[in-house]
Structure formats: structure tokens, C-alpha cells
């Protein structure tokens, strides 16, 4: 007999519905407009580590299932200059894991006129009001490495020391002897040495990522080695990723080109730069900050769940 039942309890589904209701109410109270941009778009994402699933219509037009509503939301920001949020499913062609389902609920919001500091303050308020979280601890990426690993990730000698440490570690030795990407080295060191030491009970914002990992964040004008990008960790879970948004069309275009070249050398499928987004940024993106949060992961914390399947009506495997 096929196992057709949900793994989530009715109580969990009620908590899920209540969380969605609270999130909508949070943004309604702040005049942040709900939008629902398309799941199927002409462009995919150029990010080296994010893969789109794609589909074709009966006239053989390719459409990419969106991995985040970011590009479409930025077009609305450029046109209307109004703060917006979207609460919707996104899809990534990733393996499943304890904290990851290829289709998941994303909360993404953009605050016009905010910088990353102001947005972090709002995230802190949101986590307190919907999840009873304690105050948000802020820790710069560089300080996290210096505090927990005694190595500076922004210097060549620091990166070398971090790389050596991973090569000496039996768990990562065979991968790291042949790894030459500085970003991958730092990211794996972060996972093995920093994440396990972050406080569990309190949400932590890791801020000022190296500019090589800026994604769509502005480079910090005070220290160009870092970008105004942050991530939120809580209870051992990566919960959110946000930026003081890049508004420079030329720089955006260069980052797309860089991504495309990296994808090509990694022999990944070609993804064209989204010219609709580029045109919108060229028209003018207002000064703003934005963040994307994994709602299922937040619910996992609220329900004390050990696996994402427990908080989804149906997981990818049972859908």
C-alpha cells in the first residue's frame, strides 16, 4: 500500500498556518506590500552554486522555475519604489537533506530606504514577534574567523593557514588537497569550525562577507575587502541571507559575466544574464536592503523538528 499520508501532524500544520498568518500580519502592519511574482520566468540564475529546474511549454519555450523571486521583485522596486514582500514556494535542483527540500517556502522582503543595519533591526523584531527569539547577536565574518579559528580570512596568509588546517583534518583532507577556490575553502571552514561554535539559543547575524562572496550586495565603501551581505544562523540552522542591495547596473552586469564564466569553467549549463533585471537596475533601483528567509527552517525551530520533512505537508520524496 502506498504511503500516502503526510508526515506532518495536524498540530504542525496548524503552527505552519499560524506562522504564515503572523508573517503576513507583520508586513501588513508596516505597509510592506505583498506581491506574488511568477514562478515560471524566461531567465534562470547565474549563481555558480544554485541550479534551476526548467520546463517547456507546448510551443517549446523554455521557462525556469525560480530559485528566488529576487529578479522579478527588483523590477517592481525599480518601477514603483515601494517596499514589498513575497511569501511563496521556490525550487532548486538540489539533493534533499535534513534541512533542505528542493521545493521550499521562501519569505523574501525588500525595504526601500533601508540599509543592512536597519534591515537587521527589523529581522530581529520579526524573529522576536513570530518566534519569541532572544536578541540578535551581530558578528562580522572576519571576527568570527579570528575569534573561533585564530585566522584572518581577509589576508592571503590567513587563507593559507585555514586551507592548511582543512588539509590536516582527516574529515576534509582528500577534498581539500585538490581544492583551489578560496571561497569554497572559507565556506567549508565556516561549516566545520565556525558554525558549530555559534551560540545555539540566540540568533546570530554573520555580517560583512568577503567581497568575493558579495552575490548581489554592495561592496563596503569603508573596506572594499568586504560586502554588505549577511546571513542569519539560529539553532544550528542557516535561516536567512540578505544584502544592502547593489544598485549599480554596470557592476551588476560585470557580476553576471563573472558568474557565467565560473559556470562555464565548472562545465555547468549556460544561464544568460537576465536583461530585464539589468534594464530595471539601469532605470534605477532605489536605495534598499533585502533578505530571503527559509520559512520551513524557521518552522523547524518553532516545532523543535529534527528534519524538514516533519514540517512540510509533503516532502519532495512523498509529493
Amino acid at each position: 500500500m502506498a504511503d500516502w499520508r503526510s508526515q506532518a501532524t495536524l498540530n504542525t500544520l496548524k503552527k505552519r498556518a499560524e506562522l504564515l498568518r503572523q508573517l503576513r500580519s507583520f508586513f501588513f502592519d508596516r505597509d510592506v506590500l505583498e506581491v506574488d511574482t511568477p514562478l515560471l520566468c524566461k531567465h534562470g540564475v547565474t549563481d555558480l552554486h544554485i541550479e534551476n529546474l526548467e520546463t517547456r511549454d507546448s510551443e517549446d519555450n523554455c521557462r525556469y522555475l525560480q530559485t528566488s523571486p529576487e529578479y522579478a521583485m527588483k523590477r517592481l522596486l525599480a518601477q514603483y519604489g515601494h517596499s514589498i514582500y513575497q511569501l511563496s514556494h521556490v525550487v532548486r535542483d538540489d539533493p534533499t537533506g535534513r534541512h533542505h527540500n528542493p521545493e521550499f517556502m521562501m519569505l523574501e522582503w525588500y525595504r526601500v530606504g533601508f540599509d543592512d543595519e536597519q534591515l537587521l533591526a527589523e529581522i530581529e523584531t520579526l524573529l522576536t514577534s513570530v518566534a519569541g527569539a532572544p536578541p540578535l547577536l551581530r558578528l562580522r565574518y572576519q571576527d568570527a574567523f579570528i575569534d573561533y579559528l585564530q585566522c584572518d580570512p581577509l589576508t592571503d596568509s590567513g587563507v593559507q593557514a585555514i586551507h592548511q588546517r582543512l588539509k590536516d583534518d582527516e574529515r576534509t583532507h582528500s577534498w581539500m588537497v585538490s581544492e583551489d577556490s578560496v571561497d569554497t575553502i572559507l565556506q567549508v571552514a565556516f561549516n566545520f569550525y565556525i558554525e558549530p561554535q555559534l551560540p545555539l539559543s540566540q540568533p546570530v547575524a554573520i555580517t560583512h562577507f568577503p567581497s568575493s562572496q558579495a552575490a548581489l550586495a554592495q561592496i563596503d565603501s569603508d573596506d572594499p575587502r568586504v560586502a554588505r551581505r549577511f546571513e542569519i544562523y539560529w539553532q544550528g540552522v542557516e535561516l536567512a541571507n540578505g544584502y544592502y542591495e547593489l544598485t549599480d547596473a554596470v557592476e551588476q552586469s560585470l557580476r553576471f559575466e563573472k558568474d557565467i564564466a565560473l559556470r562555464q569553467s565548472a562545465k555547468l549549463p549556460y544561464r544568460a544574464a537576465d536583461e530585464l533585471l539589468l534594464a530595471a537596475i539601469k532605470h534605477g533601483l532605489p536605495r534598499c536592503a533585502g533578505v530571503a528567509m527559509g520559512v520551513d527552517r524557521l518552522l523547524m525551530i518553532l516545532c523543535n523538528a529534527s528534519s524538514i520533512e516533519q514540517v512540510l505537508p509533503f516532502s519532495y520524496q512523498s509529493a
Binding site: D47, H49, I50, D94, P95, T96, G97, R98, H99, H100, R171, W175, S181, D183, T184, Q187, V188, N191, Q213, A215, E231, E238, N241, A292
Partner: peptide, 14 residues
């Protein structure tokens, strides 16, 4: 076997 996928980074298996 645990799959780890940072939002912006290389996926790997621990």
C-alpha cells in the same frame, strides 16, 4: 550520510 547545502555555496556530503 548528511547533505549540506549552504544557501550560497558548494553543496557537500558529510
Amino acid at each position: 550520510n548528511e547533505m549540506v547545502k549552504p544557501g550560497k555555496g558548494q553543496a557537500f556530503n558529510r
